[in-house]
Simulated scan of single mutants.
Amino acid sequence: MARRLRAGQRAEVFVVDVRTGVSRLVFASDEVLVEAPNWTPDGKWLVVNGDGLLFRLPVNGGELEEIPLGGVPEINNDHVVSPDGATVYVSAEDGHLYAVPMAGGEPRRVSNDRGDGFRHYLHGISPDGETLAYIGMDAARTTNVWTIPAGGGVDVQVTDDEFADDGCEFGPDGSIYFNSERASTAPGHAQLFRIAGETVEQLTDDERVNWFPHPAPDGSAIAYVSFPPGTLGHPADVEDVRVRLLEGGRIREIATVFGGQGTMNVPSWSPDSSAFAYVAYPVE
């Protein structure tokens, strides 16, 4: 079931200039709860979901334009755009991944059947567009990092442990960034990590709960969402959610918002790494 706005609530989409740190409001609605902006490779559009549907939105402001899903079941806020801009890959509420032509046409299911209760949550696409990274959640609700060819094929399990892993995304060098609770004994205390070959490197280590690492296309920074200490999971409608940049090992505060889930779940950088997008959900 798609999320809906609360009484008196708005969804506000911002684009932030990384150099200046200034956020610019490009869309606001008190009717549709939009989430998780992607950026198209031509730099002209943001791709967001709302009401179980998919839309594009002009980067410089304008109205939502629906992207036809061609019969794909209702989608959630996990979607990525191919490097050539021709395809958007989505996670549907039936637990599967689909490839949808951006210009309209017949969609294609990408994911495989992995048994009752297994669900796929899409988060990343490799720089060459050949591989998708997703979180696989089994019937016991254990989550691990997986990859699958974008054209369909055999899944590869990247992590295989009891830790809560999420938000897996490719960096420009093909390494995988993700958030995990593997470095903490406190439930929910996720931090950011990077997998390069057989090595798992921890990137953040602080009192806040850090989710959804988004490496810039040029590798200059990592944008992410930081929840207050003690937060379990990545809930919606949380006070003091911070949009942050990790640059050269230093944390840079960009914005503090009322939000969380939907604010910045998926790759949201501009193709030239000069800006990224996020969503806030203020309540009057």
Rank of each mutant, 00 (worst) to 15 (best):
A2I: 10
F14G: 12
T20I: 15
G21T: 15
D30E: 15
V34N: 01
G43P: 00
W45Y: 14
G50F: 07
G52Y: 09
G62P: 00
E63G: 08
E66S: 12
I67R: 13
L69I: 04
V72D: 10
I75V: 09
I75T: 04
D78N: 12
H79K: 12
V81A: 06
S82T: 11
P83K: 06
D84W: 11
D84Y: 05
A86V: 02
A86P: 06
A86Q: 14
A92V: 01
D94V: 05
A103T: 11
D116E: 14
I125W: 03
Y134E: 02
D138N: 14
A140R: 01
R141H: 07
I148Y: 09
A150W: 02
A150N: 05
G151C: 07
D155C: 13
V156P: 01
E162P: 01
F163E: 08
G167E: 15
E169S: 05
G171S: 10
N179T: 02
A183S: 15
L192D: 15
A196P: 15
E198H: 03
L203V: 00
D205L: 04
R208L: 06
P215Y: 14
A223E: 15
A223M: 04
V225P: 03
P228E: 14
V238Y: 02
R244W: 03
E247V: 15
A255Q: 04
T256F: 03
F258H: 11
G260A: 11
D272F: 12
S274G: 02
A275N: 00
Y278P: 09
Y281L: 10
V283E: 15
